[in-house]
Design a protein around this nucleic acid. Structure first.
Length: 428
RNA sequence: GCCGCUGUAGCUUAGUUGGUAGAGCACCCGGCUGUUAACCGGGAGGUCAUCGGUUCGAGCCCGAUCAGCGGCGCCA
């Protein structure tokens, strides 16, 4: 049985059997205290020399950290044991004596990345993996209830290039293919079929970024919905983020404790989120001492300064048109701005969502492309979508890993990704 | 890409004006019947990132190279 099933009063006095890996082991002459770990938790096992066979005892003494073991014994309540219960072993079977495990109490972030294939089994990473799962489950549950369909866009894409973007090039039967940077354009195609669609897929960016929130491969949650405007899309995102937080608090209190998250900060997040125009945010930045021009783009430092004192996420909407790509719809009431929004996480974490209304009229789309010196022919099929019953629509893209970094309160995106990929790290 | 910092045992690190490379953890051997990343005794483990230079003598000073980290920039 799993360790979590042992850690309760119902098992006290009963014989149990469990298996896992040696988490700690201390021996004291005729006594061995062995803490074992499985996917559900840790529990102390006491092995007494006079209770088990001499062979079992000497094997147990040799059991190193991470050795795989199976234990039979009786369960006791014991305050002195790490998790409050312990097993007095009557039988112990060793599957493999582990080689010298390289991770000890002294470890650097860098070293943990080098041996990530082993660090994955730590309590910290195990907790993160469980919380990741909760976030993804929450997204799927929420979107299903809202009538959205999950779709699978391609990861290999053709020569669609936006100016300034950085694509990974891969050989493709004598041609060049690229790894997708975003599935947005494909979601817009799916929209004409299913109306409300979303995907959770990897996106790839060949950016030579060296910041705590950039990686070259990340989990991208993107949605697109017909007949929806910018403000309505923000409503949906707000509800969705709250749903994820509630689920996480309900499902993963233990994991949040393991990563030392201050849960009061998460509990404080409630409706409504702040909603400020771009100009208002520039004003807030200036009040906090930032030197910002009227149409300054917000860098990481600016976002951190602006968001660090906030207790709830902030929507920033209607950016100056020159800051945003052609597919954002210009505001009909103010063509110098687009109907878009970013969602900035509080506590200094910054941008987690970018979204807004799409330019849906064919002529306007082509005009915007030309204004940005792009050739509409390079986007032939995307433009073609506007030729057959085009409709107003909106969408967004959320960086799952960035969201998780905020929710877990960790200081670097590479701590929430099992095998993070950066400019300088491709292994393990 | 630019700027800065760092590189000493498997890991985390100390190393004084340039003068015999030191510790903790992990590992091996021995001891201990209630340990909490135990404790006590012993042991093994080093091309001081690499290459070159200065010097009687370099972990330390100088130069180059490599690697990593941090910040900036970049950033559907």
């Amino acid at each position: 049985m799993h360790i979590s099933d042992i850690l309760n009063d119902n098992r006290v006095g009963l014989d149990v059997e469990t298996r896992g890996w040696v988490y700690r082991s201390r021996e004291s002459g005729k006594l061995i205290f062995m803490v074992i770990r499985d996917s559900t938790g840790i529990v102390q096992v006491v092995i007494e020399k006079d209770v088990v066979s001499p062979e079992e005892f000497s094997m147990a003494k040799k059991a190193t950290i991470e050795s795989s073991v199976e234990i039979e014994g009786r369960c006791f309540k014991e305050q002195k044991a790490v998790t409050g219960y312990e097993i007095h072993a009557t039988k112990i079977k060793i599957y493999q004596i582990a080689e010298n495990f390289p991770i000890t109490k002294d470890k650097s972030d860098e070293f943990l990345l080098d041996i990530r294939h082993l660090w994955l089994r730590s309590r910290e990473m195990t907790a993160v993996l469980k919380m990741r799962e909760t976030v993804l489950d929450s997204i799927r549950g929420f979107m299903k209830e809202k009538g959205y369909h999950e779709v699978q866009p391609p990861m290999f894409v053709g020569g669609m290039v936006e100016g300034g973007s950085t694509l990974f090039e891969v050989p493709y039967f004598g041609e060049k293919a690229y790894l997708t940077q975003s599935s947005q354009f494909y979601l817009e195609a799916f929209m004409y079929s299913l109306e409300n669609v979303y995907t959770i897929s990897p996106s790839f960016r060949a950016e030579k970024s060296r910041t705590r929130r950039h990686v070259t491969e990340f989990t991208h949650y993107e949605a697109e919905a017909a007949w929806i405007g910018n403000q309505q899309m923000m409503d949906l995102e707000e509800e969705m983020v709250l749903f994820i937080i509630r689920n996480l608090l309900e499902t993963n209190r233990e994991e949040l404790d393991i990563v030392k998250r201050d849960v009061s900060k998460l509990k404080a997040v409630e409706k409504p989120f702040y909603r400020y125009t771009y100009e208002k945010v520039i004003e807030i930045g200036r009040e906090k001492g930032l030197q910002l021009s009227d149409a300054a783009d917000l860098g990481e430092k600016e976002e951190r300064t602006i968001t660090e004192d906030f207790d709830k996420p902030i929507f920033v909407y209607n950016f100056p048109i020159q800051l945003k790509p052609f597919y954002h719809r210009p505001d009909p009431d103010d063509p110098t701005h687009v109907l878009n929004h970013d969602l900035l996480a509080p506590e200094g974490y910054g941008e987690v969502i970018g979204g807004g209304e799409r330019t849906w009229k064919k002529e306007e789309l082509i005009r915007r492309m030309k204004e940005e010196n792009l050739n509409p022919e390079d986007y032939q099929w995307y433009v073609d979508l506007r030729s057959f019953g085009s409709v107003p629509h909106s969408g967004f893209g959320l960086g799952v890993d960035r969201l998780l970094t905020w929710l877990t309160g960790l200081d670097h995106i590479n701590k929430v990704i099992p095998f993070p990929r950066t400019m300088r790290r491709l292994k393990p």
